[in-house]
Design a protein around this nucleic acid. Sequence first.
DNA 1: CCCTGATTCGC
DNA 2: GCGAATCAGG
Length: 198
Amino acid sequence: MSWTDDRVELLKKMWGEGQSASQIAKELGGVTRNAVIGKVHRLGLSNRSSGGGAKSAEAKPKAAPKPKAAAKPKAAPKPKAEAKPEPKPEPKTEPAVAAKPAQSLRKAIIPAGQPLPPQPSANEISPEALAKVNEVEKSAKKLTLMELTERTCKWPVGDPATDEFWFCGLPVQAGKPYCEAHVGVAFQPMSARRDRKR
DNA sequence: CCCTGATTCGC
DNA sequence: GCGAATCAGG
């Protein structure tokens, strides 16, 4: 496949929309995400931020050459001095209430005797995020506590005192404890991103 | 492990 | 110009 004008256009469009390279590649077909990224760079639109301000120039010493043609010794000096005494704290707790529908959210249920925490005025989770969560819960893997791994979403669903309780279990993304959808409601950015900078 | 983009360099 | 291999990071 070659980069026809057509395909380049689509590439630009999708990249501009913030689509990931892999998704673009998938859409285009016949190319890998590497090809897409390579093209993006060649087109000079690697950086999605506009050139308004000076970008924090990163020092790229990259002193390590890559002699692949010559040889591939792969010395791999791995000290591996890592003994991580991880107490493994249990997953965060609080978020369960956030998963409720927006309506319930509005007037959060206050357990008797529990003082109402300072009502955060900005306590609105984007409806989109909530919808996302609802969808996700339908396809959740419904894992039990023991089935949770390092890369399964640890978002609790349901009441632990019931048999209607499970963990989301969907694949997490980046080191986070939750899947994409649940990350969205777990912690609020602080203000919904309303502006589409472009 | 999954994913992301960034860079290099033989072709 | 192209993109696989690799790097670097979440």
